[in-house]
Amino acid sequence: MSKRVLITGAAGFLGSHLCDRFIKEGFDVVGIDNLITGDLANIEHLFKLEQFDFYNHDVTKFVHVPGKLDYILHFASPASPIDYLKIPIQTLKVGSLGTHNLLGLAKEKNARILIASTSEVYGDPLVHPQTEDYYGNVNTIGPRGVYDEAKRFQESITMAYHRFHGLQTRIVRIFNTYGPRMRLNDGRVIPAFIGQALRGEDLTVFGDGSQTRSFCYVDDQVEGIYRLLMSDYALPVNIGNPDEITIGDFAEEIIKLTGTNQKVVYKDLPVDDPMQRKPDISKAKEILNWEATTSRQEGMKKTYDYFKGLSQEQLYKSEHKDFSKHIVK
């Protein structure tokens, strides 16, 4: 009998790629998404498959899945600044109430659960590169705190379930990831730059461009997540590509990639925007025998080609998301 996995946030960027991977591995996949930030277009190719079921559901409400579950992957959460700044309360709720509900479901089903955390738990780090034993430098009451603290709480309650109930838990700290199915203009660097390039606009760099990021292609990220789920390691593990670049230099790479003559324009740096972001992946190498293998040049070409191939209607849909009906005041 096939193993069965539940993936929350299934219609999102990473969630949809994880659905693909587990289908490929022979699993029966149950996807859940309330479609606040996700898009059914990301998983519509799976609807014809007998191995795939989908529920439009908000995991901050009680979650019931009939039948056995072997694994749960909790990826339901806004993940970009534009998203979580527009729906801050929902962001906090999915990290707290949603995680609590899914941990309870994992306990009921005797399933192993992997929680998607983030490099944002490190805040604006004072340690570089960031190791898993660094506790972070986070502003709990700043605008980004709704996401950062949701993820930090998520890790805490996950470890509490592991220690108190003996639940099999895994925690992945995801560093900047990119690839096909991202939503343009969601506030993250790569989709913002690609969206501007496709529209022939100048590229916007916040700050002086000296801040750094390390970008991991989605296929590498999914491989790391899969290996972590199948491992015996319960503490957090960084999964990301340590190939670091300044945002200013990256903007020039985008202009070269797109073959356009845009300029780079500079604007004020947002509050609490991290100045450095680079994972120490020693633990992933040692425990999972994992490291990223896709170069930034190769991954960016695949990503740009994907967006170039979308129709104007698809591009518009990727750039615009209506949050008005989801905002809790």
Rank of each mutant, 00 (worst) to 15 (best):
119 S>V: 08
126 L>K: 10
115 I>N: 06
151 K>L: 11
133 D>M: 10
212 T>S: 11
218 V>H: 09
227 R>Y: 06
202 D>N: 13
190 I>S: 04
241 N>P: 11
213 R>Q: 05
105 L>Y: 04
237 V>C: 11
210 S>K: 14
115 I>T: 03
207 G>H: 10
110 N>D: 09
128 H>C: 09
230 M>F: 11
243 D>C: 01
101 N>T: 07
126 L>Y: 09
234 A>P: 15
131 T>A: 09
217 Y>H: 11
187 G>H: 08
212 T>V: 05
222 V>C: 09
186 D>F: 12
122 Y>I: 06
239 I>L: 02
197 A>W: 13
200 G>F: 02
191 P>W: 13
207 G>C: 12
189 V>C: 07
178 Y>P: 07
169 T>D: 06
176 N>M: 11
190 I>R: 07
147 Y>C: 00
123 G>D: 03
205 V>M: 10
159 M>F: 14
150 A>V: 04
132 E>C: 03
184 L>W: 11
199 R>S: 09
234 A>D: 12
212 T>A: 04
135 Y>R: 15
177 T>G: 05
119 S>I: 08
144 R>I: 00
115 I>F: 07
198 L>I: 07
233 Y>N: 09
169 T>E: 00
185 N>E: 10
174 I>R: 02
115 I>C: 06
120 E>P: 06
157 I>T: 12
162 H>N: 14
167 L>M: 03
140 T>E: 10
230 M>K: 07
202 D>S: 08
147 Y>S: 06
123 G>V: 03
211 Q>W: 15
192 A>P: 13
225 I>H: 03
241 N>A: 00
208 D>H: 13
132 E>I: 02
150 A>M: 09
159 M>D: 15
127 V>S: 05
197 A>C: 13
198 L>G: 03
128 H>D: 14
141 I>G: 11
207 G>S: 12
169 T>S: 03
166 G>K: 11
176 N>C: 13
103 L>P: 09
241 N>R: 08
201 E>P: 01
111 A>P: 11
147 Y>I: 01
122 Y>D: 04
199 R>Q: 11
239 I>T: 07
241 N>W: 08
192 A>H: 15
